[in-house]
C-alpha cells in the first residue's frame, strides 16, 4: 500500500494511503487533510481542491483537461504544477508523491 504526502502551507505534513481509483481530493477529505474545501464535490467546477504537485511526480498525475485549466486560471495562487485534486485519480504508481497545499483556496 502506497502513500501520498500532503504538505500544508505552514509546513505541517499529512499522509494518506493510496486507494486505487479514488480521487486525490477524496483521499484528502477522508484523511482530514485541512485546506481542501471541495465546494463542488469533485465536479471540476469550483477550484477549491487546488494542490501544487511536486514537479517530480507531475507526469504520473495524468492529463489536464481544458476545463481544469480554466478553473485553475481563476486562482491567483496558481503555480506551474498546479492541479485540481478532484481530477487526479490515485494509482500505486503515485506511491511517495508529494503535493503542497496553497495558502488559500479561492
Amino acid at each position: 500500500m502506497g502513500n501520498i504526502r500532503f504538505i500544508e502551507h505552514d509546513g505541517t505534513e499529512h499522509t494518506a494511503e493510496i486507494e486505487e481509483g479514488k480521487s486525490l481530493m477524496q483521499a484528502a477529505l477522508d484523511n482530514a487533510v485541512p485546506g481542501i474545501d471541495a465546494d463542488c464535490g469533485g465536479s471540476c467546477a469550483c477550484g477549491t481542491c487546488h494542490v501544487i504537485v511536486d514537479r517530480r511526480w507531475l507526469d504520473k498525475t495524468g492529463a489536464i483537461s481544458s476545463i481544469e485549466e480554466q478553473m485553475l486560471d481563476l486562482t491567483p495562487e496558481k503555480e506551474e504544477t498546479s492541479r485540481l485534486a478532484c481530477q487526479i485519480t490515485l494509482s500505486e504508481a503515485m506511491d511517495g508523491m508529494v503535493v503542497r497545499l496553497p495558502e488559500f483556496q479561492m
Partner: peptide
C-alpha cells in the same frame, strides 16, 4: 454534512468572485 456543496455562488468559470 457537506455544507459547502451548495449552488448559491454558482459553478464554473463565472463562480462568484466575492465568495470569500
Amino acid at each position: 454534512k457537506n455544507v459547502r456543496n451548495h449552488l448559491s455562488f454558482g459553478f464554473g468559470i463565472h463562480r462568484c468572485m466575492g465568495n470569500r
